Simulated scan of single mutants.
Amino acid sequence: MKPDCHPAWKPALILGTAMFVIIGAFLFPPISQDASYHEFADRERWFGVPNFWNVATNLFFLLVGLAGLKALRRGMPAGTLAQLRPSYLAFFIGIALIGPGSVYYHLTPNNATLVWDRLPMTVAFMAFFSIIVGEYISHQAGQKLLWPLILLGIAAIVYWHATEKAGHGDLRPYGLVQFLPMLLIPLILLLYPPSFTGTGYIWALLGLYGIAKVAELFDESIFQALYPLSGHALKHVLAASAAYCFLLGLRKRRPIRWNEL
């Protein structure tokens, strides 16, 4: 069994941090989707495909997602908890669906197609957060959180899209769905003992995802330096690599037997 890892201040700190961020987000006025978001550096047509590299690099998501689903179909890898199988499946289904969803968006970037890019990303974010809760805090909590989190994430996207169509877009709920788990996960990793060896795979995922977001910010600069690869296309490669790090972890991690330590 794990050592006693549930003193009251730990969940209180996590919940308090979450509430502080959520309240803080809604102290700001609604944030609509900037139209310039859809103006990517890569606008070149190759082989008849517009925005070619932003489209083509989504293949990595599909490949990683399918590889993860294949690994789970063969049985539960050693680095997984059987109780969290739905969460692992939801994570890799989300990763796989990012591929076609993002392809659809990048062929004709606009708010309507962006919905189908963000939906599978949200499924992956929420499933991954439920995995971390299940592996570090309580597998029962991870199980119970999966579907409410996914539904909450989908609701945030539906809300954003509805407000955009009404002329007063509000990205705040979606921003929380995307970034709050990335804030809470490191806190959980630091506060609670792991169920498996190889925590580095999760830190690598977080690090690669952070670098991917930086690459996205420097889309044009990277395009000028690494032509024909843009910062946004590089973001796709890095984010898919982050998911692959987790898949490697599932294959290579081993359960920690705390009663033998």
Rank of each mutant, 00 (worst) to 15 (best):
M1E: 13
K2F: 12
P3E: 03
C5N: 14
C5E: 14
H6D: 08
P7W: 06
A8N: 08
K10I: 03
A12C: 06
M19D: 05
M19P: 01
V21N: 00
I22F: 01
G24Y: 02
L27I: 08
F28G: 07
F28S: 12
F28L: 15
F28V: 12
P30Q: 04
P30A: 12
Q33C: 05
S36L: 11
F40N: 07
D42Y: 03
D42W: 03
R43A: 14
W46R: 07
V49L: 09
N51T: 12
W53P: 01
V55H: 09
T57W: 07
T57N: 13
N58V: 04
F61N: 06
F61D: 01
L62V: 13
L62F: 12
L63A: 15
V64W: 09
G65E: 09
L72Y: 01
L72S: 10
R74M: 00
T80E: 01
R85F: 04
S87W: 00
S87H: 04
F92H: 09
I93V: 15
G94L: 07
I95D: 03
I95H: 01
G99E: 10
P100S: 07
P100G: 07
S102K: 02
P109E: 06
N111K: 10
A112L: 14
L114H: 13
V115F: 15
W116D: 08
L119Y: 06
P120M: 10
V123G: 06
V123P: 12
A124F: 08
A124I: 04
F125G: 07
A127I: 14
F128S: 13
Q140G: 11
A141P: 04
K144M: 08
L145A: 15
W147Q: 13
A155L: 15
A156E: 06
I157P: 07
W160V: 11
H161S: 14
H161V: 00
K165S: 12
A166Y: 00
L171M: 15
P173L: 02
G175L: 12
V177I: 15
M182S: 08
L183F: 04
L183C: 00
T197D: 02
G200S: 05
G200R: 10
L205A: 11
L206V: 07
Y209D: 02
A212F: 07
K213Y: 01
D219P: 06
E220F: 14
I222N: 02
F223V: 05
P228H: 09
S230L: 03
H232Y: 03
A233N: 01
L238Q: 04
A239V: 13
S241R: 06
S241M: 11
S241A: 15
A242I: 02
A243R: 05
C245R: 00
L248W: 09
G249I: 13
L250P: 05
R251S: 14
K252P: 00
R253S: 10
P255K: 04
P255M: 04
I256K: 06
I256G: 05
N259F: 12
